[in-house]
Each structure stands twice: as structure tokens, then as C-alpha cells.
Design a protein around this nucleic acid. Structure first.
Lengths: 200, 200
DNA sequence: TCGAAACTTGACGCCCCCGTCACCTTCTGC
DNA sequence: GCAGAAGGTGACGGGGGCGTCAAGTTTCGA
């Protein structure tokens, strides 16, 4: 009866518990918002006991950190990979937005949790980059500028406006009955390709 | 000794208390976030007693409603007025953004409170318009389209991306040591004027 | 097979918040 | 100047969260 993975039961349970907490936390934070959520709310969505929670995380905030790290990490990786392949301004912009919108749709719960708590996350992790990936976009933009792909304008504001627009348009897209990432991508891409290239 | 306003003392005190609660609440919500804030946190910032709070508002949520209504109302009025005067696409866009960025700087505490709790507010008032004024912008854009001022594209996404970009760029602007609304306005305006007019 | 180590459990003590309400102070109109 | 109304006050009962820890259960390795 050892049709399980290689690691011993001990290890597997640990992993499962940790994951259960993370999953429950994501739900709770999405529904109630971080501030209103309690450790007990999370534990209740789990079949663990209160005490067990504290074997895995010292407090509510740490769980948020873990949840956000996981989620934002995934989103950023995808978007960044998509962008890396762009050989033209158009591709760079379009592929990045597309990856982002696709992710929003793929993991609605996580994106709901992130947008619900964006303000808190911003305030908590003083690297605002973590939340929105603004800093990384800025990096990529700088690289693009250096490569002559992108006109040299205020990169900070460029990144900020792209992230802001994507966030808000993404929220609208998710609100609709039949989210269409293609349309969202098309809209935002056209906007920025024109807006960025036409600068004096 | 009646050098006060016309209304009786009773009335004046009522007004003062209500305002004191609103002011305290704004601070508390900005610092702690709505979810983590308690009615007592608010009351403590005031020289009123717990019971008094409940003479003015039935609960925490109502205060948030009042605070947001006040704040968002002010911001929207300004932005809308600025936009109304725009006779060209350029003026419409530029004046609106300028009014928004000016307001951010003028009332930092309120804007901090709004951005800190944007997610909660969105979730709480199902009219997302209240928060961001997206709907109103969309209205204005529609009017602009009808008047031939603005090219006819997806107005919803147009509004969403403008609001999102303004929000994010505004946040960046406030982060800097010497916030420059002129620069922010210039950047975002150029982006959207180009982006919006160049559509096929 | 068995004993020790690893982990889980949930009750416990402490703390704080909620909304109320009987009592007191202040204002107002006569 | 006074009586009654309006409004302020803060202690109170009830509820629930927090983090801990002694006792119980499971896993592991020899």
C-alpha cells in the first residue's frame, strides 16, 4: 500500500496541511478581505485544529505573504516570459497583456483575492512591485528602450499606466458574462502601442 | 456671547460630532484598513463616548459609506467640471486628468484612504462607479463620442483604462518627494490622446 | 515489535469588541 | 428661571478571537 509519492507520510501530510491552509486562506481573504478575516475563519475552512495552524504560520500576515508570493510569482513569471519573446514593440505589449488577461481568467479566485486586497498588500509589503509587478515591467521596458524597441519616455509612468490600465480593464473583463481576453488584449494593446510610439 | 452661526448650539454640536467621527474614521480607515478597524478605534480618536457614535451611525459600514460618499463626490465633481469645459479631445482628456491629480495632492489623507480600501469599497458598494467614477467617465465619453469629439471605440474599456492608469500613475506621483501633477498630467494625456485618436 | 520523536488537538486564560441602556448633563422654549 | 426634551456617557453582558500547551495520536527507525 505504498502507491504514494516517495516522501514518507509525515512529509506528505505536512505538505497537504500547508496547502490546505493556503487554499483556505485565499478563499477567506477573497471573501472577507484580509483585515476582517481571522485565523479561525481560515482554520474553520480546513479540517485542522487551531493549534495546527500555528505549527505552519506564526500569524495571519504570514499566510497572506505566502499566498501573495505564490500568486504574484506565478502571474509575473507568465507575463514576463510572454514579454521576453517580443521582438517588436507591438509583440512586447500585446503578448504581455494577453498573458495577464489569460491568467486572470484561469485563476479567478486568486485574482479576486489579489484585487480585493491590493490596497492592504501595497501597504504591507513596502515593495509595491510585489503586487503589481510594476517594477519588473519597468525593468523590461528599460531593456526595451535600450534595445531601441521602445521610445525613451518616463519609464516609471509608462509601467504604472500599463499596469493600472490592465488591472482596471481586467476587472471589467471579469465582470462580464463571457470574458473575452482577446478583446481586452486588443483594446489595451492598441492603446499603448499608439500611445507609446507616437511620443515626440 | 452669540457670535456663533445662526443655528442653536444643539444643532452645531450635532454637526461637529458628526464631522469629528467622519474625520477620525477617515484616518483610521487609511491607517488600518476598513476590515481591521473597529468602531472603538474611531471613537478613541474623538472625545466622544462609545454610545454617542451609535447616535450618529448604526455601524462601521455606514461611516465608510458616508466618508466615501463625501470624498468620491468631491473628486468626481471636480473632474467632471474640468472635463465639461473641454472643447477638444485634448482638452477633455488633459483637464480631467489634471483635476484628478490636483485633488490627489490636495487631500492626501482622503486619497490614501480611498486607495487603501479600494478593494473593499468595490466589494461593498456594488456600483463600482462610486469608487472610481468609471461609470461617469464612460458617460462623458459617450457624450464626447456623440459630439464627434472622440472616436467611437469600446467606451467601457476606454473609461476603465483611463481610470486605471490615472490611479496607478497618481499613486506613483504621490510616492515621489516632490509630486508634480503637471508631469503626471502630461504623460497620461499624451498617452491617451494618441491612443484614442489613432484608432482605425 | 516497541519506544521515542513528531505532530495534532482543543480547551484555556486573556483580551477586546459589539451594541445597549439607565442615568446624567445640557440646551431650549416658555 | 425652570421643566422637559434632546443628547451624551460609560459600564455591562454576550460573543469571539488570540496564541499556548498538556495530553493524546501517529509515524518512524531500529
Amino acid at each position: 500500500m505504498t502507491n504514494a509519492a516517495l516522501p514518507g507520510k509525515r512529509e506528505r501530510t505536512k505538505q497537504a496541511n500547508r496547502t490546505a491552509i493556503l487554499v483556505a486562506a485565499r478563499e477567506v481573504f477573497a471573501e472577507l478581505g484580509f483585515g476582517a478575516a481571522s485565523v479561525r475563519d481560515i482554520v474553520r475552512k480546513t479540517d485542522l485544529a487551531t493549534g495546527t495552524f500555528y505549527n505552519y504560520f506564526p500569524d495571519k500576515e504570514s499566510v497572506l505573504r505566502a499566498v501573495v508570493e505564490e500568486a504574484a510569482g506565478e502571474a509575473r513569471v507568465r507575463v514576463q516570459e510572454a514579454r521576453r519573446n517580443g521582438r517588436t514593440l507591438d509583440a512586447f505589449v500585446r503578448d504581455g497583456f494577453r498573458a495577464y488577461f489569460d491568467y486572470l481568467i484561469e485563476d479567478r479566485l486568486t485574482s479576486a483575492m489579489l484585487s480585493r486586497n491590493a490596497g492592504t498588500i501595497r501597504a504591507m509589503f513596502d515593495e509595491p512591485s510585489l503586487v503589481a509587478g510594476v517594477e519588473e515591467l519597468a525593468e523590461d521596458l528599460r531593456a526595451g528602450v535600450a534595445a531601441g524597441l521602445i521610445p525613451d519616455h518616463d519609464v516609471e509612468y509608462m509601467a504604472a499606466s500599463m499596469v493600472g490600465a490592465a488591472f482596471e480593464v481586467g476587472a471589467r473583463m471579469l465582470d462580464s458574462d463571457a470574458p473575452d481576453p482577446g478583446r481586452a488584449t486588443e483594446f489595451v494593446s492598441a492603446l499603448f502601442v499608439a500611445g507609446l510610439s507616437s511620443r515626440a
